[in-house]
């Protein structure tokens, strides 16, 4: 164990379950915790103590062997030296790790759509959008944090849906069944115009998972359908001349047999 310096730097200790039980049994009072902090401490199962009390608990946990304490990090900041948080970790892990009270929030990225709406999204969502990620990589970290990244081809409505998709996809990807069900639900909730605009946005931002999902959905709608049905379904204008059409129909008459009924299913 490293010795304490004059400035009373307190070491953060990894306390085994046994030691944790001992520390709890020593009935350490919780001091100087306001209501807010108390609520926080309870929600994260964190016990916050004064340095002196931390010392007391430290003496009780001297049983920790040298090997166990080799990798214990030393508290570097003054704030850390004032407070020592002993966090109770899940029972599956056989160690309780001391952590600082202020947990660092995940970095966010600002995105500005073509209709002027600004979105603040988590960094991992921005990473899913390869175009945005490339922009972040190209510009310095400071600049990208300060400026909203302009998305010239994406409207607010589409971006909101994409963010929703990324979040839901992450939740659903625990099991293959859930994921399939989620993708079907997501696609079913879109009408054709929304799907078209969303696939354009997904292509522009290069959001691979969403692009694949929407492509599958559209391909499914096209499969084994007559040309007339596809035109009608997607509202596509036939720009072939009557002669071209007749010639094509004659050459490929075989292609017009055995197609599905012109229904949406």
């Amino acid at each position: 164990m490293a010795k304490e310096s004059g400035s009373s730097k307190i070491e953060m200790l990894e306390i085994s379950n046994e030691a944790m039980a001992e520390a709890q049994s020593s009935k350490i009072e919780m001091l100087e915790i306001n209501n807010e902090a108390m609520a926080e401490a309870q929600s994260s199962k964190t016990v916050t103590m004064k340095p002196a009390e931390a010392e007391e608990s430290k003496t009780e946990t001297q049983k920790i062997t040298d090997e166990e304490s080799k990798n214990v990090p030393i508290a570097a900041t003054e704030e850390e030296s004032k407070k020592l948080s002993i966090t109770k970790v899940e029972e599956s892990k056989n160690a309780a790790t001391a952590t600082t009270e202020g947990e660092k929030e995940e970095a966010k990225v600002s995105l500005k759509t073509l209709d002027g709406v600004t979105f603040e999204v988590e960094a991992w969502i921005a990473k899913e959008m390869e175009t945005v990620q490339a922009y972040i990589d190209d510009t310095s970290a400071d600049t990208s944090a300060a400026i909203a990244i302009p998305l010239h081809n994406v409207a607010g409505r589409e971006l909101a849906r994409m963010v929703e998709y990324c979040k839901e996809h992450r939740r659903a990807s625990v099991s293959a069944g859930n994921l399939k069900e989620f993708e079907e639900r997501f696609a079913a909730a879109l009408n054709l115009y929304e799907m078209k605009d969303l696939i354009i946005a997904a292509n522009y931002l290069n959001t691979k998972k969403l692009l694949e999902s929407l492509s599958r959905c559209i391909a499914k709608a096209i499969k084994n359908k007559s040309v007339e049905f596809v035109r009608d379904y997607f509202g596509v204008t036939n720009d072939y001349t009557t002669e071209e059409e007749a010639q094509y129909r004659e050459t490929n008459a075989w292609a017009f047999r055995n197609v599905d009924e012109d229904s949406r299913n």
């Binding site: 492509s215 204008t237 072939y240």
Partner: peptide, 24 residues
């Protein structure tokens, strides 16, 4: 490129059975 991504999911029968006749 979006249309190509969609058409990549179709098999040879679907590609040759009229998709190309929808529009130019």
């Amino acid at each position: 490129d979006i249309l190509v991504k969609i058409f990549q999911l179709l098999d040879i029968f679907e590609l040759t059975s009229g998709i190309s006749r929808v529009c130019s």
